[in-house]
Amino acid sequence: MNDAPAPRTILEYGLSSGNAGLVQLLGLCPLLAVSNNAVNALGLGLATLLALIATNTVVASIRRLTRRDVRIPAFVMVIAAVVTTIELSMRAFLPDLHAVLGLFVPLIVTNCAIMGRAEAFASRHDPARAALDGFATGLGFLAVLLAIGLIRELFGAGTLFAGAGRMLHLPWLELTAIEHYRGFLLAILPPGAFIVLALLIALRNRWQARRAAASTHPMEAA
């Protein structure tokens, strides 16, 4: 496949230039709804990452067996089966986390990034590249979701990964960053999610602008 993208290009697109959370602004519902702390963000981000990898791999594997007129329904069935498997596994092995995330785990099915990558990439490339694309896209989404969760929890409660021992069985992740902190309520409330996301987008755009300026005027940047 001569026109197949290189692995580095796939990774760069999923993590940076085509980042689902900061550039395409896809999956904003979980980004804003469950990112009030780092544990929730990490849990849903990992579930989305697994869903993207599995969905892309399966779609790429059956792409030659699926007729064009039933391709989208077939992809939806694959995504639903993968997400259902992830939800049942989470309910069995991480019940406390599943109880907190609730409806947002099955709502991964509606994440436009998953269907978008299945149609735009996985249906046109081999399973290995499709799996890498799912990994890159999922990791980029996880990074943004976790960054928002960390910032909101730190400023809102002065802690990091509070509840990780109970919900993820990882007590060593729990950290009290600011002792006797009274909290900043706005950071935990829904408007805080919009503010943090806007700041992250602004920082990324600023970095991109400076990078572009440096490449255009290397002597001035030096």
Rank of each mutant, 00 (worst) to 15 (best):
M1E: 13
M1F: 06
N2D: 10
A4Q: 06
R8I: 11
I10G: 06
E12H: 07
G14F: 00
L15Q: 10
S17R: 12
G18M: 00
N19E: 09
A20I: 05
G21V: 03
G21P: 05
V23I: 13
L25K: 04
V34K: 09
N37K: 12
G43K: 03
L49F: 02
L50G: 04
N56M: 05
N56A: 01
I62R: 03
T66A: 04
R67V: 14
D69V: 03
D69N: 07
V70R: 02
I72Q: 09
F75L: 06
V78C: 05
A81K: 01
F93A: 10
L94I: 10
G102Y: 07
G102W: 01
L107G: 06
I108D: 02
T110W: 01
G116E: 08
D126R: 04
A131Q: 05
G134D: 03
F135C: 05
G138M: 03
G138E: 07
G140L: 12
I148H: 02
I148K: 00
I151F: 11
R152Y: 09
L154N: 05
M167D: 09
T176D: 11
I178R: 03
H180V: 11
F184V: 10
F184K: 11
L186N: 10
A187V: 04
A187Q: 06
G192C: 15
F194E: 11
A198F: 04
I201T: 15
L203S: 14
R204V: 13
R204P: 12
N205G: 14
R211P: 13
